[in-house]
């Protein structure tokens, strides 16, 4: 029987809910043959604002969770993604991947999430230090989460690029506002459905779709966003860097082949951390032995 296929309307993901964009605008990205592949929200600056508000609200409790618990929750994302592998493979094919490429991308995404789940309760031991100082102080440096991380998902992949930047940012207790790939946005919202059905609290990850040139400056200039990570921004680079100056946002750009197993590691986590050094006075009687 002939039937007209339903073109799915993908909504955005803010504070654990799936609202439509407040602007009421939509766009339809197309595949190589020019067919529409979905109705996507063309988000506005107010959606960015709402997403940042939700991320700030979620930050306190997410960053205060035990590292082990965050690891459990990140691992749960991988489990849920595993269960919906087929859907992602079909979606990637719809966006122009071959079946083999799509399968490889989804499996790598799952493995990468598991990889970062493992790091959750380990990065702090590796990155922290006890520092030698020549006064009567116990001097140590530990990591603290930064706050809200703005993520511009890599434009040339729909899933693996997004996972590669997003997961290391949130595994250390940050919350995130992510702008999906403009031309390949489908997996970002389906990934939001995965996040929503795993145990990630609402607001920890917020995902918007829309025009990069419209949304990025708003995110970059937002005073309540503490870091901005992306691939190289090309013509938007200078403007974005200038906008990020006012609140001294940490800004990192990465150029990596996300489909390589090497494009993961501790430094993706450490870039979105603050180091805190504490000088703790100690009694040093006689000056011969350690007294802490």
């Amino acid at each position: 029987m002939n039937r007209v296929e339903i073109l799915k309307t993908y909504k955005i993901y803010i504070g654990g809910a799936f609202p439509r964009t407040e602007s009421g605008r939509y766009y339809t990205p197309v595949n190589k043959t020019g067919e529409g592949i979905g109705n996507m929200c063309l988000s506005s600056r107010k959606d960015v604002r709402n997403a940042v508000t939700a991320a700030r609200k979620a930050f306190g409790s997410w960053s205060e969770r035990s590292a082990f618990n965050r690891g459990q929750i990140i691992y749960r994302i991988a489990e849920m993604l595993e269960g919906r592998k087929e859907q992602f493979i079909l979606e990637l094919q719809k966006q122009g991947s071959t079946k083999a490429e799509a399968e490889k991308e989804v499996i790598l995404a799952i493995d990468r999430i598991v990889y970062y789940a493992g790091w959750c309760d380990k990065y702090n031991q590796v990155l922290s230090a006890v520092n030698p100082v020549s006064s009567s102080h116990f001097n140590f440096t530990t990591c603290e989460s930064m706050g809200i991380v703005g993520v511009l998902a890599p434009q040339t992949t729909s899933l693996i690029g997004l996972v590669s930047l997003l997961i290391p940012a949130i595994c250390s207790g940050n919350t995130a506002v992510l702008i999906a790939s403009e031309k390949l946005p489908l997996c970002a919202i389906t990934f939001a459905e995965v996040l929503n059905s795993s145990d990630v609290p609402g607001g920890v990850v917020n995902i918007l779709t829309g025009n990069t040139e419209e949304l990025l400056p708003v995110l970059a200039s937002h005073m309540d966003v503490n870091a901005l990570i992306s691939e190289s921004l090309g013509s938007l680079e200078i403007e974005t860097a200038k906008a990020a100056v006012d609140n001294l946002k940490r800004k990192f750009t990465y150029n990596a082949d996300w489909s390589s197993e090497k494009s993961q590691g501790l430094y993706y986590i450490s870039d979105c951390l603050e180091l805190k050094t504490t000088w703790h006075p100690i009694e040093n009687i006689g000056g011969t032995t350690s007294s802490y």
């Binding site: 700030r56 937002h222 005073m223």
Partner: peptide
């Protein structure tokens, strides 16, 4: 300022 604000300030 045209820029969204943070309660930090």
């Amino acid at each position: 300022t045209g820029v969204y604000q943070s309660s930090d300030y």
